[in-house]
Design a protein around this nucleic acid. Structure first.
Lengths: 222, 222
DNA sequence: CGTCGCGTTGACAAGGTTCAAATTTGGTGG
DNA sequence: CCACCAAATTTGAACCTTGTCAACGCGACG
């Protein structure tokens, strides 16, 4: 089975793809959102497509009683908010202070459709999201708490290109709502991994993680 | 990679969503798969796209130790197996005896791309899968066992156009692997719904379900 | 210097899983 | 036609992983 690291690989191509448009024929502007601010809500009109310049965004769905499921985290260069229909199917919020590049959805779609191979790129964009969702369903439906947390740090590691120290922009509750757990369970799993010398924290807020044993991580992630 | 032709009943006709294409310029044939037979495997070459004529198909991913997550069930007229890349990201099996219409992936994609608005249709196809996956992540990450089973019968009810009696082609284990539960938990939840007069079984194998109170179902499904 | 947000940890509860057994059904072969 | 067996489903009981509730520590910030 091929190891698919979320949609990180597609996302990088995506940024290049978008670079070919923005500023040439598709108007774009920049916006800044402060920590915790909503970018768009479920069922809002899908007017814009977003690309992150700095910061981090969570997209999520909620149940009426407040239970929340985060679909994905978006990091610099990632696009989000692309919809086929006229309505957003989920909400988006800034996890920390975030700068985004905003493109009008209709102009992007028109331009892409007109361009040679543009349709294929758009399908690739949606497909990479679908691929991530498929992997995440397997995680949510069938993995243990420890496996989920391992998968999470692995994903973050890959998406930050295996840095010396992973920086987590989100808090434990966000991680929990992404992994279908409680924040306490996430905390305990991370402590277990720390005690097993698989990772180490580099700051007092426990948001900077060094992976001490990527082999074990990859093993546990199988 | 293999197109299993062992029990094939080979013809060349057309129906359903693809009627606009198939038989005109895109060659198609029909195949029959017996209960439990694999249609394609994860990482197989994605040579064909499939549309169900009769029967039912499950698509799923597996972990090395055998844990399984079913992404979705496909019923008559549904398409499945469409990939952007050259490789299937999951496996597909016939839940019961199933007849499918098979189209070569490359010819379908070419034809769709050439056609006016065809690209949009393809994106819509992928998007509807993504939408289902997003809803399913919410279910897997945040819903209780009873809520999941309610959501399942609701989905089956809708997809069979609210029949007098829902016919479930899949067994309890399939339902469990779709909902991220065990087959025992699914059975217990269905028994609870039966005891609460929300549904009733119409046959000895408990595969035919009558919904006695669609309002309660819709409520619980919120 | 008090408060608040965030994270960790402990004790306990509970929802779901595991293991086991009984029942039913459908299929197969004698 | 009947005996036998495998597969599917239900149900019970024990167990365990995860959730819930609470306490505590720490740093940031007004």
């Amino acid at each position: 089975m091929v190891l698919r690291t979320g949609n990180a690989d597609h996302r990088t191509t995506t940024s290049g793809l978008l670079a070919g448009f923005v500023g040439e024929r598709v108007p774009a502007s920049h916006f800044k959102y402060r920590k915790g601010v909503e970018i768009f809500g479920e069922d809002d009109e899908a007017e814009y497509v977003y690309q992150i310049q700095s910061g981090a965004v969570r997209t999520y769905k909620m149940l009426p009683d407040g239970r929340r499921q985060i679909n994905s985290f978006h990091l610099p260069d990632d696009m989000f908010g692309f919809e086929n229909g006229p309505i957003h199917r989920f909400s988006a919020e800034a996890v920390i202070e975030t700068t985004v590049c905003i493109i009008k959805r209709c102009s992007l779609v028109d331009e892409m459709a007109a361009r040679e191979g543009g349709a294929r790129d758009l399908i690739g964009l949606v497909t990479s999201n679908l691929q991530h969702a498929e992997n995440h369903m397997l995680l949510l439906g069938r993995k243990t708490a420890l496996e989920r947390v391992v998968a999470f740090v692995h994903e973050m590691d890959e998406r930050q290109h295996r840095p010396a120290v992973i920086r987590l922009p989100m808090n434990r509750r966000d991680i929990a709502d992404y992994l279908g757990l409680t924040l306490e369970t996430v905390s305990r799993a991370l402590s277990t991994l720390r005690d097993d010398n698989i990772l180490r924290f580099h700051d007092s807020t426990q948001r900077q993680v060094e992976l001490l044993n990527r082999n074990r991580i990859a093993e546990l992630n199988a």
